[in-house]
């Protein structure tokens, strides 16, 4: 339950809500280099890191993946596409070390969110905040690229 409570998606949930949630989770072990989820694949599960490390990447070309993030802290998660239509993973996730993860099935979580609207509202609010932060980060990245282009045209 400690891992779940440290996941940003579940911040603000009560102890009883976390208990309900933990009843829907299962633990898996994945070896280094193994692919956890593939970009473009149907998103059925949410993964929460318990031990190890998972790298998030996006496919640019065949044989070239751009690094997006490294999850190293317990409670960090990937697979949030399983919470939003069209339920398709938009990143590759690969274990950078032998890892243990908690898995929450999309359907089980959706059922829990429908049964407990407060839980559903908290999870979606946390997700929206996270996506907003990611949007700001991506905009900042674009700005850096355009700054580089602009400065090179000025010299």
């Amino acid at each position: 339950m400690h891992i779940l409570s440290s996941c940003y998606l579940f911040k603000g949930l009560s102890k009883s809500q976390l208990l309900c949630l933990s009843a829907t989770t299962k633990e898996i072990q994945i070896q280094k280099s193994e692919l956890l989820m593939k970009e473009g694949q149907q998103a059925e599960e949410l993964f929460i890191l318990k031990e190890g490390a998972v790298e998030l990447l996006t496919q640019v070309e065949d044989g070239f993946e751009l690094p997006i993030a490294m999850l190293r802290n317990p409670g960090e998660c990937t697979g949030t596409s399983s919470l939003v239509a069209p339920y398709v993973y938009n990143l590759n996730s690969r274990c950078a070390a032998d890892s243990k993860l908690l898995v929450i099935n999309k359907t089980a979580l959706k059922k829990l969110m429908l049964e407990d609207h407060e839980l559903g509202c908290i999870v979606m609010k946390n997700l929206a905040q996270h996506l907003l932060d990611r949007l700001k980060e991506t905009r900042q990245e674009l700005k850096i690229h355009f700054k580089t282009i602009f400065r090179s045209t000025q010299s």
Binding site: T58, L66, P67, I68, A69, M70, E137, Q140, E141, I144, H145, K147, T148, R151, S152, S155
Partner: peptide, 20 residues
């Protein structure tokens, strides 16, 4: 060290400055 796509953008910016 981990360098993500944003970090790569920062390094490219630095490289462009040094080239200039």
């Amino acid at each position: 060290a981990y360098i993500n796509s944003g970090g790569i953008a920062v390094l490219i910016q630095l490289l462009a400055e040094t080239k200039k």
